[in-house]
């Protein structure tokens, strides 16, 4: 099996999910400069709701084809998450619209904790296994395996990114969103209702987040009330990597982050195998002969890469890959 190609495929899959989640962060940030830390939790709730619906339908024993089950799950998760996204904006952030920036940021963290514990109350603390309703088929692609789930995730993500781009650049509501992102007060003077635009960014982000949650849950076969935290932080890192506030940046950042993470996880074991370094050869000779390998850092360190990337970006290019250098507005 070709490890490199395999990790590229895996990276593209998780990267697509990161990109979709990152779009939720970046859209909201673009318009109101708020990092909606509760977005990861919205994604988690999307996965949980879909999981509940699918499990219930399977339990009911109806002879439905798997695709219908998943579809029903997604169709329930999306409106639920849209409602949560709207409520977050309406209840938690709008009253603080003109408060110092730290206040809504702390509120976002608070909302994240509240949603997480709400999920804990509803779904319990044990990880829920996503029902295995589909037979996952794998295809051989140049020595690497790509599963049907991976194909669907990548394709669906590309479609969502395409639709979002079309919406933002080609429709007049999209024009209103971009105008508000550039100057929300002037946009208001031109008759754009800032509240509607801001609510829309939350709702759109949440809808895509719900789909991302279902994709993530299906891919790893598991859903847990804390899954939104790491996923959210990684997607946020992706948004920063691409340049927060920039749509193309979030997509690029998500994919890149997924690739870095997958390749890192794929090679870190080999690179930190101490037996290949002569320095340690003598020291660990006994263990090396017995096992062949003494691996310092295994693939479970994969989470480190996302945040390593975040740190490097913040140090060397704080505005992100596609972000413009922000000049202070007069």
């Amino acid at each position: 099996m070709d490890i490199f190609l395999q990790q590229i495929i895996n990276g593209l899959t998780t990267g697509s999910v990161y990109a979709i989640v990152a779009l939720g962060y970046t859209m909201v940030y673009g318009v109101i400069q708020l990092i909606n830390f509760a977005h990861g939790e919205v994604v988690m709730i999307g996965a949980m709701v879909a999981f509940t619906v699918i499990t219930a339908l399977v339990g009911a024993g109806l002879p439905l084809p798997p695709i219908v089950l998943v579809f029903a799950g997604v169709l329930t998760a999306v409106p639920v998450c849209m409602a949560i996204g709207y409520l977050l904006e309406r209840v938690a952030y709008r009253p603080l619209r003109h408060a110092p920036r730290l206040a809504p940021l702390i509120t976002a963290i608070g909302m994240s904790i509240i949603l997480q514990h709400l999920a804990l109350l509803i779904w319990g603390r044990d990880p829920r296994a996503f029902p295995q309703i589909m037979e996952v088929t794998s295809f051989n692609l140049g020595g690497a395996a790509i599963s049907s789930v991976q194909i669907v995730i990548i394709l669906l993500s590309v479609v969502m990114m395409g639709v979002l781009t079309w919406f933002v650049y080609r429709t007049r509501f999209g024009i209103a969103i971009r105008a508000s992102a550039e100057d929300v007060r002037v946009a208001a003077l031109m008759g754009v209702d800032a509240n509607r635009v801001i609510a829309a960014t939350f709702i759109i982000g949440a809808a895509m987040g719900a789909v991302a949650g279902v994709m993530y849950g299906t891919y790893y076969g598991i859903a847990h009330y804390t899954m939104g935290f790491t996923l959210g932080l990684k997607a946020f890192s992706a948004a920063v990597l691409g340049g927060i506030g920039n749509l193309a940046g979030a997509m690029l950042g998500g994919i890149l982050l997924g690739l870095v993470e997958a390749l890192g996880a794929g090679y870190i074991g080999d690179l930190t195998d101490l037996c290949q370094w002569p320095v340690f050869g003598g020291l660990l000779a006994e263990r090396c002969e017995a096992d062949g390998h003494v691996i310092l850092l295994g693939s479970n360190y994969q989470d480190v890469f996302a945040f390593l990337v975040l740190i490097l970006v913040l140090v060397f290019r704080p505005s992100g890959l596609l972000g413009e250098r922000v000049a202070e507005r007069a």
Binding site: F167, T171, R172, F173, G174, I175, A176, A179, A187, M190, G191, V192, D193, R196, A200, I203, I204
Partner: peptide, 15 residues
């Protein structure tokens, strides 16, 4: 076109 928002009914879902 942004200026036209005042005189038209914008809707996200309609769009």
């Amino acid at each position: 076109m942004v200026g036209r928002h005042v005189r038209t009914r914008i809707g996200m879902f309609g769009a």
